[in-house]
């Protein structure tokens, strides 16, 4: 692909995801408000919040490590942009990927969490460092089951680490989701995504009911807007990631558009429902949850998938 085309794809993919993310965030807030007998914010609220923060001043905390503090949100956003663009491109043009791009996407999705930790540590605020240590533990806990779940999908689709092939194999044959191991892996991945998004029950990195504090306590103005936007993008991008890996990918031509949209909305609603009906876990509880419950389930799915592959049983 030409460089020009790549840049074009990057910009288009990022902006598209951002817009989708704003809408997803609005759905989230509106549902919460309705549960509490309130009306809730208008549909453009998340976008306006970000625009406003862009126009505000950036306050540098006296104790912060200046460069690290300011640059980490941008790096996190860049990671999210790249991941999202790769996802879009590989979904829409199945041939352009390279071997191992699935792993690269996984890496890229981990970058926002890593930069959050670095930024919080650089801000020199005890609240933030507390949040950072939790975020770090959380990151350690959910990455393993998520990777194993990804392996399940890879085994199902012919053993290639190319997203293009994972999607292509599913569009030709059946979705990964249409097997026992696929369903298990999907559920594991869904919960990991919940943690990646920092939503209840895994939102311990940013404390209470308000959208902030914790790791973001010291941020203000444009850096905060960047953090918000990164989070909104992830809110849109991670469901797409799930669709790509387990549900046959996203298509933007013809009737499959509708199918893709329905898949996206279902996953988003699932995430919102989990968020609204569940308590927050303590950090040690979530570690235990991911390691002792989700990881064995993911391993079980992996085993089933391998057996199915070995003996040619499609539904396993």
């Amino acid at each position: 692909m030409a460089v020009g085309k790549m840049v074009f794809a990057l910009i288009l993919g990022s902006i598209g995801t951002l817009v989708l993310g704003f809408l997803a965030k609005w759905v989230d807030r509106k549902v919460t408000a309705r549960v509490q007998w309130r009306v809730g914010p208008p549909w453009y609220q998340p976008a306006v919040d970000c625009i406003k923060l862009m126009g505000k001043e950036t306050v540098m905390p006296a104790v912060a490590q200046g460069t690290g503090f300011l640059i980490t949100p941008l790096v996190g956003m860049a990671g999210a942009c790249v991941a999202v663009t790769m996802l879009w491109v590989m979904n829409l043009e199945l041939g352009v990927g390279f071997v191992g791009d699935a792993i690269v996407v996984m890496y890229m999705f981990a970058i926002p969490a890593l930069t959050t930790i670095l930024g919080a540590a650089a801000s020199g605020n005890p609240h933030a460092s507390l949040g950072a240590s939790r975020e770090m533990k959380l990151l350690l806990s959910y990455e393993l089951p998520l990777t194993i779940a990804l392996l399940v999908a890879i085994i199902h689709t012919g053993g290639s680490f190319r997203i293009g092939q994972i999607v292509g194999a599913q569009q030709e044959g059946s979705m990964v989701f249409m097997s026992i191991s696929g369903v298990l892996a999907f559920l594991v991945a869904l919960l990991c995504v919940q943690a990646k998004l920092g939503l209840i029950p895994f939102d311990m990195a940013e404390a209470e009911c308000e959208i902030m504090a914790g790791v973001y306590t010291e941020y203000s103005g444009p850096p905060l807007a960047v953090i918000f936007m990164t989070r909104f993008m992830l809110l849109a991008a991670l469901p797409i990631f799930l669709i790509t890996i387990f549900l046959g990918g996203v298509q933007l031509t013809g009737w499959p558009v509708l199918a893709s949209l329905i898949k996206f909305v279902i996953i988003l609603v699932l995430i919102t429902l989990i968020r609204n009906t569940n308590p927050r876990l303590r950090i040690d509880q979530s570690l235990r949850f991911f390691w002792y419950m989700l990881t064995p389930v993911a391993l079980l799915a992996l085993g089933l998938a391998l057996i199915g592959r070995q003996y040619g049983v499609g539904w396993l």
Partner: peptide, 22 residues
């Protein structure tokens, strides 16, 4: 911030409720 938080404490309290629920 230096004095940490009622928030933290409340959070703990909430967690305990959830634990019992569970």
């Amino acid at each position: 911030n230096e004095l940490m938080d009622a928030k933290e404490l409340q959070e703990l309290s909430v967690q305990r409720t959830r634990w019992f629920e569970k």
